[in-house]
Each structure stands twice: as structure tokens, then as C-alpha cells.
Write a protein that binds this DNA or RNA. Structure first.
Length: 495
RNA sequence: GGCGACGUGGCCAAGUGGUAAGGCAGAGGACUGCAAAUCCUUUACCCCCGGUUCGAAUCCGGGCGUCGCCUCCA
């Protein structure tokens, strides 16, 4: 497997520290609001990476935190006249709910910053002892110039940063580049006692401490959005490596930004799209499919058009799966149709094997989900052609089953669950059968059979009025009826 | 100004040395009572100009363009 390492800016062979085990830390959200769709993209990207590593047989230890103490949370709390704890706990719950709805696996451990304050104080204290940090008026700052390799991840020189002139000037800092490890509490702010007085940890130290505590150092993969490279990840490295004098993370992986109308989401542009609102309208599978059609490191421009396209693409997979299943259930072994010009059972089987191999090859190459999906769609096309002649033999059945298994398994690696069971049929079907055909059915299932048989008979006698009445009746109940050479099949329309 | 990334068909997007996956949209055809679904066929001067090479979308140099980071940010 090859992985693009932001630190070296190239793809590298992925070799975990411990054979068969992978340790990952992904920066979680600051819980001051509902997460937006850009946040969601990052968490979905790393969820897929994790799922693939698991599928590849690795024992994956996946840590993702909650930053539940931060200036933004405090600001929000002030605005709304409630406590920072209330704000944090509301949006922590909302975040967990969103992750569940998006099909993101729960981390092995989801540490909260506020539960880890003691460790942070210990690390800060040690950094001061080692002369990598200093306290001023209850604040503690990290001495950037005491860490020679500072800037290596983001690829910038200390002097270049200064010339940017956007660095905040703070008289109390020894150097304008120094950043806060500990912030003294102001009136009305949450605080913890420390050797430097009451205060709270800085954002960067939180992630350094939590990753070190739960994964040790060095650990394998550190992930997050590309916008965290500087200063967040740069600072994490400086703190952790200065304190523990060993490598922090071995591979740095960064997800590309999600843009809306070609611009990054921002408050000033007021183009935030909250994932909870998106999920009200769009199936999470469609969202995942849409995102995974682009490589995780590339920028992704989100738009209504892209969603519409993804809906169609998703339906293509869904209907192939459904149609294959239907063909298996409605096999006509006795049929002697000539299948030579179509895809044979053997061809379908090798098509599925090829798709699987291409899927793996793509995913092994820095988690190329777009390529992996290409392999899946190639199998979809192959399967559809195969289905033109229906299932005519046991070999056909076997190959068709294999396709279903392959598709469900591979999509599952992408976190897209295609195996959802049949929804219960509505009772109204019984009334419909009775109304149109005068036949009483005991169950909706029986009613469907009666209706389809009634329609078949009507069509056979060229009674189009009756045939269409039955179809219209089913359509009104949300069903789509499709006539194939092997008979009529029926399914519930997507909502 | 500094750092970095990207520029592939109408739209989106894989592909990093051997003449271009896939999705969406379009056109033509097949099937069909109609519809739906599906199948078949079809659409690429790989931003421009130089260079390296037997051979480049792919490597190197230059240009143009887009975007991100440099301040909180997934």
C-alpha cells in the first residue's frame, strides 16, 4: 500500500510501526456549532481509510477527539447567555448523531479535551522545565525558536512567516511566532487550576496530549483537513516532539477542502451548509458516493447539480443490485434463449473478479476511491448486460449471487450499506387488489402477486386500460413497475 | 509578498513514461402497447510554448489561468 505523506509531500510505501496494527489520530471537531458538510467530508474520508485498513486485515486503533473547550465555544456561550459546558455538550451530542447518520464508525476512543486537562498541564510543565516554553501573567507560550525543525510540515521558514505581517503582535510574547499552550481565564470563562493560575489549555496542546496518551509516540497516521496543516499540526509536532524527544506521527494525511460554488465555506460569505440540513434531504449514501467520486486530497466543489448526478449514479448501483436479486428469485432454468451474444456466467464471474482486483489496486494506491468506484461501475455495466437474458442456469445463479456479494462487500468498504432489507409493504395494496380485481388478499405480499398476475393477464388479452389502471394504482402507492422479458418486477420508488 | 496545489471530452473525475477508467448530460439505434428499466453504437488537439526520450497527459524549464494556506477553520 502506498500513502501520500504530507510531511514528505510524496507517496510512500505504508509500513505500520507494529506489524498488522495501525494507529490513527484524526482531529475532531470543536463543538461550538453543528458541523458543516466540509467537516463531514474529512470524517468520511478518514472513515473510508479506516474501513479499508480493517478490510485489509489490520487491527486499527482509531482515536478522534472532541475539542470541548475553546474560545469559539466560550464566545458562543456568551452570545447565547448560557454556559460553555452547555454549548459544548449540545454540539457534542449533535456531532455524534451526525456521525452515526453518515455511517461513520465510532472511534476506538473519543477523548474529550476537558477530561484530559491533567495530562496537558503535565506536558506544559515539562516544556517549561525543558526551556521550550515560558509563563507570562498566567499564560504559557511555546518558544517556537527552541524547536529547530518548526515549519517542516507546512514547508515554511520562520522569517517568511514574520514577513507575512499578519502575525498578531503581543507585547508579552518573547517572539511574535510563539503560540499559547495555556490561556489565563478571564472573568466568566471556564477554568482549571494550574501552576500558572486558573485557565484553560490552548487548542494545539489538546491534540498533542490526547494522541500521545492513547496511541503513544510515534504513532502511524495523523489526519485532518488540509487547513489544519498550519498552524495546528505544525504546533502539535513542535509540542510533542520537543517534550518527548521522539517522532510524533509517521504519516501525515490531509483531506482536501470542500468548496461551495468554488469557494471555501466561511462565515463572511455566509455559505455554510450544515450536514444535518443536508441529511434531511439526501440519503447519506448519496453524500458518500458524491464525495468519494473525488480523491480525498483534491478540492471538491459541492453543488446541487453534483448531488443530482450522484443520486442518479447511486440509483444505478441500487437498481442493478435489485434487478440482479429479482433475476435470481425469478430464474427460468428451462428457458432456452440464446445467451451467446450477451455476457455469460463465466464472463460475469471474471468481470467480478477483475472489478475486485481493480478496486483493491486503486485503494492500495493512496486510497483512490474514485478509481475504486470506477471498478464498481464497470462491474455494474457488465452485470446489466448479463441480466438482459435473465437467469437461465445454475451457473447464472451462482455468478449473479457472486456479483451481489461483491457489490455489497466493496460498497461496504466505502461505508455505503447496500444491504438494507426490504421495507414492509403497505396495507393499501390489499384494498387496491380488491378494488381493481375484486380479489381479497390476506397480506400485502399476496396482493402484489394478485395485482401483477392481473396485469399480466390484462396485457395478454391486450386490455391496456386494465393493465394501466393496475400500474397507476401501484404508482400511487409509491411503486415502480418495470416490464422485462422475464416478466414484470416491482419496487418501491426512492423517496 | 512567502509557501503549496491544481489545470484531462458539454459538466464532474481517475490515470504520473508506451497513444486516455468511470459517473452525469447529449446523439443515434434496439427492446416496449405505452411507460420505466436496460442494452448497443457514438463524442478528447489531456491549458500554451520549449526541452529530455525510440516514445509524455504523465519527467524538466518557461508562460497563462484557477484555488488553498500564511488569522479561527475539517
Amino acid at each position: 500500500m502506498r500513502v501520500f505523506n504530507s510531511m514528505t509531500r510524496q507517496k510512500e510505501e505504508f509500513i505500520p510501526l507494529k506489524k498488522g496494527e495501525v494507529s490513527i489520530y484524526v482531529c475532531g471537531p470543536t463543538v461550538y456549532n453543528h458541523i458543516h458538510i466540509g467537516n463531514a467530508r474529512t470524517f468520511i474520508s478518514f472513515d473510508v481509510i479506516r474501513r479499508y485498513l480493517i478490510w485489509r486485515g489490520y487491527d486499527v486503533r482509531y482515536i478522534s477527539n472532541i475539542t470541548d473547550v475553546d474560545d469559539k465555544i466560550i464566545n458562543r456561550a456568551h452570545e447565547e447567555g448560557r454556559s460553555a459546558e452547555e454549548v459544548a455538550s449540545e454540539y457534542t451530542a449533535a456531532f455524534e448523531k451526525a456521525m452515526l447518520a453518515l455511517g461513520v464508525l465510532e472511534p476506538t476512543i473519543r477523548p474529550r479535551a476537558t477530561d484530559e486537562i491533567d495530562e496537558m498541564i503535565a506536558v506544559i510543565d515539562r516544556l517549561i522545565t525543558m526551556d521550550h516554553a515560558y509563563a507570562v501573567d498566567g499564560d504559557v507560550y511555546f518558544k517556537v525558536r527552541s524547536f529547530p525543525s518548526y515549519g517542516s510540515l507546512s514547508g515554511r521558514q520562520l522569517d517568511d512567516m514574520l514577513s507575512g505581517a499578519r502575525v498578531e503582535i503581543d507585547e508579552r510574547k518573547n517572539d511574535p511566532l510563539d503560540f499559547a499552550l495555556w490561556k489565563a481565564a478571564k472573568e466568566g470563562e471556564p477554568f482549571w487550576d494550574s501552576p500558572w493560575g486558573p485557565g484553560r489549555p490552548g487548542w494545539h496542546i489538546e491534540c498533542s496530549c490526547m494522541s500521545k496518551k492513547y496511541l503513544g509516540m510515534p504513532f502511524d497516521i495523523h489526519g485532518g483537513g488540509a487547513d489544519l496543516i498550519f498552524p495546528h499540526h505544525e504546533n502539535e509536532i513542535a509540542q510533542a516532539e520537543a517534550c518527548f524527544e521522539t517522532v510524533f506521527a509517521r504519516y501525515w494525511m490531509h483531506g482536501g477542502m470542500l468548496l461551495i460554488d468554488k469557494e471555501k465555506m466561511s462565515k463572511s460569505l455566509d455559505n455554510f451548509l450544515l450536514i444535518k440540513d443536508v441529511l434531511e434531504q439526501i440519503d447519506y449514501r448519496v453524500i458518500r458516493l458524491l464525495m468519494l467520486q473525488t480523491h480525498y486530497r483534491s478540492p471538491l466543489d459541492y453543488s446541487r447539480e453534483r448531488v443530482d448526478e450522484a443520486v442518479v449514479a447511486y440509483d444505478r448501483i441500487k437498481s442493478t443490485l435489485r434487478n440482479t436479486q429479482w433475476a435470481i428469485e425469478n430464474a427460468d432454468i428451462s428457458c432456452e434463449c440464446d445467451a451467446d451474444e450477451f455476457v455469460s456466467a463465466d464472463m460475469l464471474r471474471s468481470c467480478a473478479e477483475e472489478a475486485r482486483a481493480q478496486f483493491v489496486e486503486s485503494m492500495d494506491d493512496d486510497f483512490n476511491t474514485a478509481g475504486a468506484l470506477g471498478a464498481i461501475f464497470t462491474l455494474i455495466g457488465c452485470t446489466n448486460t448479463f441480466l438482459v437474458h435473465g437467469i437461465q442456469s445454475d451457473e447464472d445463479t451462482e455468478s449473479a449471487r457472486m456479483v451481489v456479494e461483491t457489490l455489497v462487500e466493496l460498497m461496504g468498504i466505502l461505508g455505503i450499506d447496500m444491504s438494507d432489507g426490504d421495507q414492509p409493504l403497505p396495507q393499501e395494496l390489499i384494498a387496491l387488489a380488491s378494488e381493481l380485481l375484486g380479489v381479497g388478499a390476506k397480506t400485502p405480499e399476496a396482493a402484489v402477486d394478485i395485482l401483477l398476475e392481473g396485469r399480466r393477464a390484462a396485457r395478454a388479452s391486450r386490455n391496456w386500460g386494465m393493465a394501466d389502471a393496475i400500474r397507476d394504482g401501484l404508482t400511487n402507492l409509491g411503486f415502480i413497475v418495470e416490464d422485462t422479458a422475464q416478466g414484470a418486477r416491482i419496487h418501491l420508488e426512492r423517496r
